[in-house]
Every structure is written in C-alpha cells, then in structure tokens.
C-alpha cells in the first residue's frame, strides 16, 4: 500500500444534498435542545464533560435514566444541569452537595450526580464535600477543575497554581493550590479518579464506574479555561491547552489503583503551563464501607409488638 498524500484540496463530492432522513446527535434526546447552543465559550471543556457524562449513562452503566438527578451549583459548570434532559437542579453557590444528600436520603434509589466547578465545590462548598465524603453518601461528584473562577471573569480560585496570573493576582498567585483528589480521598471518598478533558473515553468510563460504585465517588476533570486562565498565562487557545493536557498527562494503570494516590500533585510552571498531570483511577475501595442510606436502614430494626 502506498501512503496517501495529504492534500488540502476540498472535496465536496461526498456531500449528500438530499439527506435520506433527519439526523440527530446521538445524545440529542438527553439534551434540553432549546437551551443549545450553550452559554460556554468556544472550545470550553464543560461541554465535552457533559458529553462524557451522557456517554457514561448511555453506554457504560445500567442505571435507569429516570433515577438519575443531575445537580449543580453556581458558576459556568453550574449551568451544566440545565442542558441535560434528566431530572435536575441548579442549587445555590456551593450547596449542590447538601441538596444531593437530601435527595439521596429521601429517595435512596435515586443516584444524584453533581456536576460542578472547583470554585463551587472546593471554595464555598468545601465543608459540605468533606462531610458527604465522611458519611459515604451514595452520590457521584464530577468536579470540573479549570483552575479559575471563569463565570465572574477570571479571579484566582483555590485551584489556581502558584505564580499563575489572574485578574486578582496580577503579580502571580502566592498561595498553593488544592489537590482536589487528595482532599476527597482524605475525607473518605471511596472512589476517586482524575482525567483531563482530552481523555474522553477513559473519562466517560470512569464516570460510569464511579456511578456504579456504591458510595461517595469523586471524579476530577481537568478542563481548559483558555479564555480566562489560558490567555493570561500564555497557554494559548483551547486547542493549545488540550494539546498541553495530552502531553502533560501521566496515566496511572489499573495496577496503581489504591497505591499511588498520594503522588498526584499537578505540576505547573509559570510561562510554560502544565508539565505533569497524573490521571487515572486513584482509588476504588472494593470492600467498601456501607453507603449511608443503607446504614440508616441497618442501624436499627423496629420491633412492632
């Protein structure tokens, strides 16, 4: 076989002028179509993560769609629940997790999935995350970490790396960022994974695996906010940032699960960008502590006599 020559000629002969049917995006049924196009900037990683979540619930898990409730807080990511045509709720800033806890305790057969941002879950809502993880409430938390407060215009967040330039750290960020995955594990999450938006299929599979896991599961998605974070730190546009993720990711293998979760710090160099992003499934406690609703049921039996 001879290698095909790469040409830049435009070939319109394959175009179908009268399509035989109406085409739909495979996930159109799971989207609130009137809300699309989304409010997100071109190339934002949140849309990709929404798609990964939809792929997870259609392809990799058997949880019935009517039993899934998507809950989000405030922020760019907070609007995610509004685009998904499932039961959903857009809670107040930082309080997506308590809301989900209430839903889960009232209806243990429901699987609450929280899709929210790093500012929402780890700044204002940090206390709730710690307690939900401690109680091991059966919910899946997908936190989209873009290293910045995007919606409000690019102020520094608890996840902004040292030295990074933002609107409110014009001379470079002084304090150290959180390692979200380690916080979740330290507080008692029984499933923890991290992927970048570049790794679509592993991310979708991890979301499904987290949802199938009984207990508090935590999935961190490293996303690109090229408009507010990338632009000010010379990381380029969405394409450049995703290519950087591709280069910087260090994938953990299945063998490393439960072993190297403490070696997962993200490395960032000022002027260069992300140099190391450990990804993969960090923790999966198979012999899990029993999740909360089950514990409530098992805590006591009522004598009827």
């Amino acid at each position: 076989m001879t290698a095909k020559k790469k040409t830049n000629e435009i070939d319109t002969s394959t175009m179908v002028k009268n399509p035989p049917k109406k085409f739909h995006h495979p996930y159109d049924e799971l989207l609130r179509k009137y809300a699309i196009p989304t409010i997100y900037c071109p190339g934002c990683g949140i849309g990709t993560t929404i798609q990964a979540f939809l792929e997870a619930i259609t392809k990799y898990t058997d949880i019935p769609h009517e039993n899934i409730v998507v809950i989000s807080g405030i922020g760019c990511t907070g609007r995610a629940s509004g685009y998904i045509n499932l039961d959903g709720f857009h809670a107040i800033h930082g309080r997506a997790i308590p809301f989900a806890s209430g839903v889960e305790i009232a209806r243990p057969d429901i699987k609450p999935v929280i899709i929210s941002g790093d500012g929402d879950l780890f700044s204002i809502g940090m206390g709730h995350l710690a307690h939900a993880a401690r109680r091991n409430i059966d919910m899946t938390v997908i936190v989209i970490n873009n290293s910045i407060y995007g919606l409000t215009g690019g102020q520094d967040a608890p996840t902004t790396p040292v030295g990074a330039l933002t609107k409110t750290t014009p001379y470079g960020k002084i304090s150290y960022p959180f390692n979200l995955s380690q916080i979740a594990i330290a507080n008692g999450a029984t499933f923890c994974a991290r992927y970048t938006v570049y790794e679509f299929t592993p991310l979708a599979k991890a979301i499904a695996r987290g949802m199938n896991h009984q207990g508090f599961s935590f999935i961190e998605v490293i996303s690109n906010c090229h408009v507010n974070f990338g632009r000010r730190n010379n990381l380029g546009d969405a394409i450049a940032m995703r290519k950087q993720f591709k280069k910087a990711r260090v994938r953990m293998t299945e063998k490393d699960i439960n072993k190297d979760w403490h070696k997962t710090d993200i490395e960032f160099k000022v002027g260069v960008g992300f140099t190391k992003i450990p990804t993969g499934i960090f923790l999966e406690e198979k012999e899990r502590p029993i999740e909360f609703s089950e514990r409530i049921v098992n805590a006591y039996e009522i004598k009827k006599s």
Binding site: P98, F99, A100, G102, V103, I105, A106, G127, H131
Partner: peptide
C-alpha cells in the same frame, strides 16, 4: 422519628447544609 418509621433525623454539618438538604428532600417527595 426513627421509632415512627421516619427515614432519617440527624445533625448535619452546618445550618446552610440543613436548609439545602431539606430542599433536596422536599424535591424528592418528602
């Protein structure tokens, strides 16, 4: 509450969590 067959009554982490958990439970039908 547990002795009359209620689902759960417990102390939560803070006041803000308690009201938001109430809203969640109410939307789930309680």
């Amino acid at each position: 509450l547990p002795a009359v067959g209620g689902k759960a009554a417990f102390i939560v982490e803070d006041e803000i969590a308690s009201i938001n958990m109430c809203i969640g439970a109410s939307w789930a039908g309680s």
